[in-house]
Design a protein around this nucleic acid. Structure first.
Lengths: 186, 186
DNA sequence: GTCTATAATTAGATAGAC
DNA sequence: GTCTATCTAATTATAGAC
């Protein structure tokens, strides 16, 4: 792996683990096994490197979500698969957690990939809910955009509950509640 | 206000704004208008002061939630009032945001009040959902504990979506979706 | 391209005067 | 109780040798 790649991968790891504010250039360099000079040669500084890392994480998350949401199955089944998908629950969402980082939120550049990723996910979920409405799997009175936001919020909030309690169970409990509320009448 | 009180209040503000990792003793002292000596006289250090601040915030949040959840009205109405309650959405949840703080999660002492607060809220919501089931307002097939987790997760995740997009609208959209799913059949 | 040296600033805390 | 040194390490970056 090239040095820039190693730097980006190390930054991704540390951003996920400690967030932007909690990640120092020094920690990145040590993790990547590179010297100061390498980093400042390839990137303008911490924000520039973080931006590259966040963009890569965003792309990866999008691809991973699409793999589940775009697979065969009924709308309910695809949403269920997304919700029940195996996750590193206690590590939190590598994109969502960035919204609690003051320096990320303060920077339009750093916030943009976060916003775009969650927005894309919401739209993708909304389209599936809409499909489910057309097929009569979901009640016609439901607003697809609203339900999509609820699904995404349950996932993001599930991470919060899990990390607070120190156990992934809280995430799963919230997901089961949502699936029960969404379940097509039998 | 006494000096310890000013220190705690300043810490509360900064923890909410920038989290634990992003808050330095120096920033707290400047905000409180106190010198180094005062802080280390009344508290053992940053973690000790943060613990006092988090405990106070936790108590306040519990009292505020109880004021809404314990008011008169049907179970659905009380949950709706809680969800639609006026919030400083873009500032995020002063308790929930701490779960994304690596140093808070790494410390059982700092994590405890966070966990206890969210756990109390979940229990409180579960009792109301249970009440709603008994009254036939919620479907008997629903699990009160699961639904309570879903409600809490939607709120916590709503903050994430709102902060990502820079607008409180995303929070409200998720809440409306949840209320639609919870709405008693008419 | 990568490394080491250097540097200004802040983080977090201690010591001791008042 | 509060204030002002003082201190060690970390943060973020620049300079310049190789």
């Amino acid at each position: 792996m090239s040095t820039p790649d190693r730097l980006i991968e190390s930054t991704r790891e540390l951003l996920w683990e400690r967030g932007y504010v909690g990640t120092s250039p020094k920690a990145i360099l040590e993790h990547a096994g590179a010297g100061q000079g390498s980093m400042y040669h390839h990137f303008r500084g911490k924000p520039d490197l973080a931006l590259a890392a966040i963009r890569r994480t965003a792309e990866e998350m999008r691809a991973g979500a699409e793999a589940v949401l775009g697979s065969p199955g009924s709308p309910y089944e695809r949403i269920e698969a997304y919700l029940r998908r195996e996750r590193d629950v206690l590590r939190g969402c590598p994109i969502g957690r960035l919204t609690m980082d003051p320096d990320v939120i303060a920077s339009d550049e750093l916030r943009a990939p976060v916003d775009e990723t969650l927005d894309w996910l919401r739209g993708r979920l909304a389209a599936i809910v809409e499909e489910g409405k057309e097929q009569g799997q979901f009640a016609a009175r439901l607003d697809s955009t609203e339900i999509a936001a609820t699904i995404l919020a349950t996932v993001q909030g599930g991470y919060v509950l899990a990390r607070a309690s120190g156990s992934p169970a809280a995430f799963d409990t919230g997901v089961r509640g949502l699936l029960a509320l969404l379940a097509p009448a039998r």
